[in-house]
Design a protein around this nucleic acid. Structure first.
Lengths: 375, 375
DNA sequence: CCGGTTATACTCGTTGCACGAGCATAAGAC
DNA sequence: GTCTTATGCTCGTGCAACGAGTATAACCGG
């Protein structure tokens, strides 16, 4: 029932019962239990037509919460979410420094303040970072210029679970749950920022492999094997689809900030033929790689985040052509649609919220919540 | 409990109870129910040490069965399996023709005979074919030289479910359940025959995407973009890792039968320097692609089927080097082990059995079985 | 304003399933 | 021959959901 409330916030009790094939008796009983546990409340629903009015199910005003935060290249954000998945932004800011220490100290302050404010209601803290994680440990964040960093200090002493995840993976989760890929059993999300990240989402859950270290789609060798990637491998797709690739095509030196560089080139592409050609080449590399991944995984839908959408928009013909050419013939009749992400740059944060709520509504977490709120 | 019996055939009732944290009362009750339903039988277990002797749980002698068959390039096989996953081969033979009609007619005869013999016990028919399936329909079997073929005729009129799957995918399932990758949460299986197929197996289930059309790992563009693949795309990995690739490296024309050709080249590689070099090049292409997939999916283990194992064995140094070079630096400390498949060329058939048993032990199928065997 | 219609909620007895405590049983150990 | 150990069986208990029947709250039409 909690899952249903999350899928359709503002749903009425009667509809939930229908969706879950519950008898009215069971619905009564279950809602009463959830109300007593301070998980849900019922408020009279606006009446529509005949029949006895039903109630709208909503998160309990003193029910569990998830704190979610996102660390991006230049800034950070913090938000709080209720059981229905509604997100309220709390605070945001630019990093005070390029080093992990001050950045984490600032985030810790914000999290501490929020925890004090919401008290026992906070049941999990969920973090999205543009970084590679192995077994919940940040091993590398090339975007932020960080090596291995211990994030557990952010909530040390609170006893709360700290959930961490890659930003592209979490954005993919958000798209699959409530975004452009909602309803798709298998979805592929690709996020171009500096390099390319992504995730295959099956049944709403990312396929992240051993230790959650999967989703490094940027390091599949779709590119030129003569190019060495900072990751250590050769021919990485990463090198073909971001600002560094644009600079190579334009015969310019590698940009210090590939992110800003790409924005500039995309901006001037409509007027500048050379920029237009470079963008088209990158769009082709993106589309042809996507086609390869579609061949391998047959997603129902592909979603594009970050610069991936604008790249396609800037060279739609080349993108479409390379996508079609890269597909196996039998897939060309009904290729998976390639859609722009619905969540924009909120995706990673909303994905972190989703994962946090998954945890909070897990069997075990609900049991521990029930112990604290007896009767 | 049925799942546990399948995971550990020959397990005793007492151990099952321990594994599932069942009280002795529940174990008594559940086994009694399953016995009455003709799903399990209990036979006295060989005594070991003190204590009251327990019983071994085994499939009921008139319990449900799965018929499994595999269609390969030149031959076919048919087997029957009980709930504990034990497989008994029934019949095998070479194809009478290269056309689907006679081949399917022969297989249909064999299946019909088996169905008559086992009667109502047969609850599913599961098929492994070296082919691409979309929504359960065979759309292409380039290996067999078939286009779209309707397989439902194989069991028409029986009312049984026909489960179909790609051979590489099913072999991967077998490896993940009971083979070299058993216990791995995420496993990658790669099968080299003509071209390369594979599957990512998460929690024992293949990630097959929309309509089950995934797993076409051979058509990821890891290769030379100038080469056009029969599949319609360019630069497919397929073209780099099979007999056709060996022929290109040896400067010979594309072989009519890449399968036999590869066996020949592998055979003479120890004596023939040119063959050795060609094999090494192919082993490198294989390993470097595997490394790319490991970067993307972070499997716990990679298993090699078909010619993939022999290719590595013929050029272990080159394979290992290309594998390591293709990995992201942070993965090199503990790269996923690359193991030869444990099931050999039985993999696909055993995978088909596994999928068939999954179906037979599903909630719905057990309910329908229970209706037929009341009390 | 009042019975009829409709949609939903509440009550209560029933059912299914597993648990746990206590007792029974079958083997080896002393 | 008893003791110990491991397991199986019986039975009363509890939980969760169901279904049938009843109650309630809105609209509708006269």
């Amino acid at each position: 029932m909690l899952a249903q409330v999350r899928r359709e916030p503002g749903i009425t009790r009667a509809s939930v019962a229908r969706r879950l094939n519950l008898s009215t008796g069971s619905a009564t009983e279950i809602t009463a239990r959830l109300r007593d546990l301070r998980l849900l409340t019922e408020t009279p629903a606006p009446v529509r037509g005949r029949g006895r009015p039903t109630t709208v199910l909503a998160p309990h005003p003193s029910g569990p919460l998830v704190l979610a935060a996102e660390l991006r290249q230049e800034d950070w954000r913090c938000a709080v979410a209720t059981l229905d998945g509604r997100v309220e932004h709390l605070q945001a800011g630019r990093h005070a420094s390029r080093d992990p220490g001050p950045v984490l100290a600032e985030l810790r302050q914000v999290l501490d303040r929020s925890r004090r404010w919401y008290g026992e209601r906070v049941r999990a803290v969920s973090l999205a970072v543009a970084a590679t994680f192995v077994d919940g440990h940040l091993v590398q964040a090339s975007n932020l210029g960080w090596g291995p960093v211990d994030l557990t200090g952010l909530i040390a002493g609170s006893g709360l679970p700290l959930l961490v995840g890659n930003d592209a993976t979490l954005a993919g989760v958000a798209e699959a749950r409530t975004g452009s890929a909602s309803g798709a059993a298998t979805a592929l999300h690709l996020l171009v920022e500096v390099g390319i990240g992504g995730a295959l989402i099956v049944g709403g859950h990312p396929v992240t492999g051993a230790g959650g270290a999967g989703g490094e789609y940027g390091h599949i060798p779709f590119g030129d094997r003569r190019l060495r990637c900072p990751c250590g491998a050769r021919g990485c797709w990463d090198l073909e689809v971001d600002g560094r690739a644009l600079a190579r095509h334009l015969g310019e030196p590698p940009p210090a900030d590939p992110h800003t560089y790409m924005r500039d080139v995309l901006d001037r592409a409509p007027r500048d033929a050379a920029a237009r050609r470079a963008v088209a080449a990158v769009a082709r590399a993106l589309a042809s790689g996507i086609a390869g991944l579609v061949n391998a995984h047959a997603p129902d839908v592909v979603t594009l985040g970050g610069f991936a959408g604008p790249l396609r928009a800037a060279a739609p013909a080349e993108f479409g052509e390379a996508y079609a050419e890269g597909l196996m013939t039998f897939r060309r009749a009904q290729p998976p649609p390639v859609l722009d992400a619905a969540h924009g740059d909120e995706g990673a944060l909303r994905g972190a919220v989703a994962v946090g709520l998954d945890h909070v509504t897990s069997e075990a977490a609900l049991a521990s919540w029930a112990e604290r709120h007896p009767r």
